[in-house]
């Protein structure tokens, strides 16, 4: 059999035909630009020095120095306290931001947009950048870290809160208003019961993130276990770094599990 009909070619507009090539060219250009201008010192990466470091660092990392356990746990505890303080400050301070940014609560368009922008602006910065500035402002102590955590968290919690508020059932509010309830009564009887579980859930979730973030603040002097990380790596004390790793992995995992359990029961 030699006779057969092939399917007709797909009909596409010029743009549809061009698009895959265009995307390909853009991607190719980005990668060429990236790989041609990145400066990796391969001579250092594949040097005798690296081989020596590998044979020294890796075994030490995997044999944690348990004699430092008390010291490490002490600073991990401080880290958790910092995360708790920062998260709780943020969980409360983010509430007004959330209300201002929610279009069904505040009818003022300018106030809405302004608060949304403020929240977005905060989220553009990593906590560590904020912490660096605050260390410069108030000196190298946990306080700088706590404020950085708090402000970073306001950015995210404010946004999440406003989304929760915008998704509430407004019929309840209307019903209460029809009953003659005043604004505060509407807030306490109609709005707060609807938003509390999700607010709490998000705040606890943010605590998980803040614990992770707090572990590294000490690298720039903002308190917590990070302080020890800097000291241990400068002294090339890799078995202590190994212990710190173990403690961070264990504590973070534990907190994630507990927090997930609590959040499951909340919502």
């Amino acid at each position: 059999m030699t006779e057969f009909t092939l399917p007709p070619k797909p009909k596409k507009t010029a743009w549809q035909k061009m698009r895959p090539y265009l995307i390909g060219i853009i991607l190719l250009a980005i990668y060429i630009w990236t790989f041609s201008s990145i400066e990796i010192r391969w001579s250092r990466v594949f040097s005798q020095h690296t081989v020596e470091s590998l044979t020294r660092v890796i075994p030490q990392l995997f044999s944690p120095d348990w004699s430092a356990f008390g010291k490490v746990m002490g600073l991990m505890w401080e880290t958790l306290l910092m995360a708790y303080t920062g998260t709780l400050m943020a969980a409360i301070l983010a509430v007004p931001f959330g209300f201002f940014a929610a279009s069904n609560m505040v009818k003022n368009k300018f106030l809405n947009t302004a608060s949304k922008w403020a929240l977005n602006a905060i989220r553009a910065f990593p906590e560590l950048v904020l912490a660096l500035m605050f260390v410069a402002a108030v000196g190298p102590r946990p306080f700088a870290g706590v404020i950085a955590i708090a402000i970073g968290s306001i950015g995210m919690l404010g946004k999440l809160y406003s989304e929760v508020i915008e998704s509430i059932d407004m019929n309840v509010v209307e019903a209460l208003e029809a009953n003659g309830a005043n604004k505060l009564q509407v807030l306490f009887y109609g709005i707060i019961p609807q938003i509390i579980p999700e607010f709490l859930s998000y705040a606890i979730y943010r605590f998980e993130i803040d614990v992770r973030a707090s572990t590294i603040l000490g690298i720039i002097g903002a308190g917590g276990i990070g302080t020890l990380i800097t000291i241990a790596t400068t002294n090339r004390n890799w078995s202590e770094v190994g212990l710190i790793l173990v403690v961070i992995i264990a504590v973070v995992t534990l907190i994630d599990i507990v927090s997930a359990q609590i959040r499951k029961r909340l919502v």
Partner: peptide
């Protein structure tokens, strides 16, 4: 090509070849 043609022919047999793409 034979496979493409066979696929198209199968679609024709169940009268849905116009939805090809």
């Amino acid at each position: 090509k034979e496979d493409m043609a066979l696929a198209y022919r199968s679609l024709e047999r169940v009268n849905i070849s116009e939805k090809l793409y």
